[in-house]
Amino acid sequence: MKGVESIEIEVVRLPHGHDLQLPDYATASAAGADLLAAIDKDIELGPLERKIVPTGISIALPVGFEAQVRPRSGLAAKHGVTVANAPGTIDADYRGEVGVILINLGKEPFRIERGMRIAQMVVARHARAVWREVPALDETARGAGGFGSTGVVTGSSKRA
């Protein structure tokens, strides 16, 4: 796609994911590739219950890249099902199976079926920080204000 960087990611399809599609993008402009549930039998996820759901794949990312496992907005909005550690990070040196920690924040049990799109994976560059201790930080207008200190944007676009 024009204007979007592509990177080749090595992927191994594990035996329990042999018949499932590899991660794929639902639309041409999608940032996240869908991850599928590689389960042999349905999983019922009760309210406030969490489980690691296998995807049937292992990947090898180049150094300097990570994969972020994120919730699917439709599952979150319609059923309250989300990724518990969102975003989950897959490091470049990890070679195990990609698993998704799903949690049901809804009021009703949720059934996960084989091949269901359960999360999305975004591949991103990252930098490695070099920490430098200093006696004090420079001053900014915001300063140490956090956790809502800049106000809430309302429908009228005014800060409250």
Rank of each mutant, 00 (worst) to 15 (best):
S29K: 11
E113N: 11
G155P: 00
A92Q: 04
I101A: 12
S73M: 08
R125F: 00
I59G: 05
V12W: 14
N85D: 00
F65E: 10
D19V: 01
G106S: 07
A92M: 06
R117Q: 09
I112Y: 04
N104Y: 07
E8V: 14
G106E: 07
L48V: 05
L35P: 05
R13D: 02
G56K: 01
V153E: 05
E8W: 13
T27L: 05
P54G: 01
G64F: 05
V81C: 04
H79A: 09
G3S: 09
L105D: 06
T154Q: 07
E97M: 10
W131F: 15
G145W: 00
A124N: 10
G143F: 03
D40Q: 14
A141W: 10
R128K: 15
I57P: 02
V4C: 08
E66R: 13
R114P: 01
Q68D: 07
G146W: 04
G155D: 11
A26P: 06
E10T: 11
E5W: 03
A38H: 07
R128M: 11
A141M: 13
K2R: 12
L36W: 09
K107R: 14
K41S: 15
S73F: 10
G148M: 04
F65R: 14
V153Q: 02
R111E: 10
I43Q: 02
A30T: 09
A33N: 10
L35G: 07
V69P: 05
R72Q: 08
V4H: 14
I103P: 05
K41E: 15
E97R: 07
R125A: 03
L61C: 08
L20G: 01
A38I: 06
M1R: 10
A76R: 11
I9D: 08
S58T: 12
A28K: 11
G74E: 11
K2P: 12
L14Y: 05
G99I: 11
A33D: 08
V12K: 15
D34F: 04
D93M: 06
A160I: 12
L14S: 04
D91S: 06
I90Y: 01
D42N: 14
A119F: 06
T89C: 01
D42F: 12
S157M: 12
N104E: 10
A76T: 12
T140P: 07
T150L: 09
L61R: 09
V4T: 14
P87H: 05
R125W: 00
A77V: 11
I90P: 00
D24Y: 14
N85E: 00
E108I: 07
V81L: 02
F65C: 14
G148F: 03
V134I: 15
G115A: 08
R125N: 03
I39K: 05
V134G: 08
A38W: 07
E139G: 08
G145E: 09
V98I: 15
V100P: 07
V134K: 12
I118S: 01
G32I: 02
